[in-house]
Design a protein around this nucleic acid. Structure first.
Lengths: 225, 225
DNA sequence: CGGGCCCGTCAAGAACGCGTCAAGAGCCGT
DNA sequence: ACGGCTCTTGACGCGTTCTTGACGGGCCCG
């Protein structure tokens, strides 16, 4: 089941697209303005985004820029204009495809399929992460420490997932915050400290001397298997 | 061999579809009115239903509703009208696809294939599920707890079935809702909570401390034998 | 030695999700 | 038409999780 985010301020078009997409076995979430759209990208993790330029609150290219700042999800841009200027600009900003209105629904569906196929596995779950001390199975949401099942909260899972996507690499505080709490959380609050603490208590053999969930002072955190 | 139920009161169209479907290696059963159709869904367990709205005995949407009450089988709706109102209503009621007359037979065949593919093995019956405390026989619709027969309602069976298809695995709320209530139920309501509760009362040795039907907060449910 | 800065730790209130109950509607067979 | 059974829906309490503020300690720098 592929999840499609439809961003359009025209309720009729939104509805039409939603129905057509659902009829072809997709899951659909919608947004009517740019800010909601960006938020949905991070929170709902769609497999593909259909983005109408010309939203009420933000310039279309700005929305695209923000989506790209938050995710690499494929974006198909809709636009009323025929001029290729927009098209070029949109594609430069990272749109994956471009459809001008009016368009046939079938055409759009075909492009959605194509985009999803190309988009590959970024929305997909991580494989299990194994260390000498614990095992994390993201698909099943199962954590095992020394053979014992350990219960992790949803937010703890999201933090871990963001870290484990780049095993051994530094993840900056800002990126981590955005990945877990959404794009508007650029500024540090206690979040990371609290959850790093929590996770170390649950997973590390000696929480005071972490061996897997490491702090890079002033920068961010790093997960090493 | 996929089994297709064709519901149409026009004998000519019925005949045309039957021939076309058989020619492509399908098994075909037919119904000419709504009541027969609903009965056939439960008795013949088709892999997909082609349903013409505008039947003599029942309103089209009513037929669809009843089919949905009995099964999650994919339904492709046929309609003479072009107005999208009907279309929207049908899809909201859980139709999986919608074809307006006139249509090409090839197109319909393609949609049948697509629906079956999406539907996957949902129509197939599960083998019996046995735990130390109860036995579930899905084929016979018979549940036994400590040797005593227990009555489960149709919806309870469907919830159990969706869970038992992936024993030991997490089934997300959204997937569960869709599997039981149809494709248009993406959003959480009380459904799952109510039925999880009901099932635990009927099946679990200690409903307050479930051992088989487990909650994964914020995510979904998991059945462990 | 003193002062920031940043991180880890803790605790309390708010917000959320789940289990539970019960009332009402719809469908069925009698 | 009536009564029973399901399904649907809202309300409520409770436990868990999230959020937020406060405090202390280590480290670097002046």
């Amino acid at each position: 089941m592929t999840r499609v985010l439809v961003v359009d301020d025209d309720p009729r078009l939104q509805r039409t697209l939603t129905i057509a997409l659902r009829a072809h076995g997709n899951e659909v979430v919608t947004a009517a303005d740019g800010r909601t759209a960006v938020q949905s990208v991070t929170e709902d993790a769609p497999d593909v985004v259909i983005l109408d330029l010309g939203l009420p609150d933000l310039d279309g290219t700005e929305v695209l820029r923000r989506i790209r700042a938050a995710s690499v999800v494929p974006v198909i841009v809709l636009s009323a204009r025929h001029e290729s200027d927009d098209k070029i600009e949109a594609l430069d900003l990272g749109a994956d495809d471009y459809v001008t209105k009016p368009f046939g629904v079938e055409e759009l569906l075909a492009r959605v399929r194509a985009a999803v196929r190309r988009g590959g596995d970024l929305g997909r779950h991580l494989g299990p992460v194994v260390t000498d001390h614990f095992v994390l199975d993201f698909a099943e949401r199962r954590a095992t420490v020394e053979g014992e099942d350990v219960r992790l909260t949803p937010t703890e899972w999201r933090v871990l997932e963001a870290l484990c996507r780049e095993p051994g690499h530094l993840v900056q505080q800002q990126d981590l915050l955005r990945a877990v709490w959404g794009p508007s959380y650029g500024r540090e609050s206690n979040y990371l400290r609290v959850y790093a603490n929590q996770l170390r208590r649950k997973l590390e053999p000696d929480p005071a001397n972490p061996r897997h969930l490491l702090t890079e002072p002033g920068l961010g955190y790093r997960f090493v298997p």
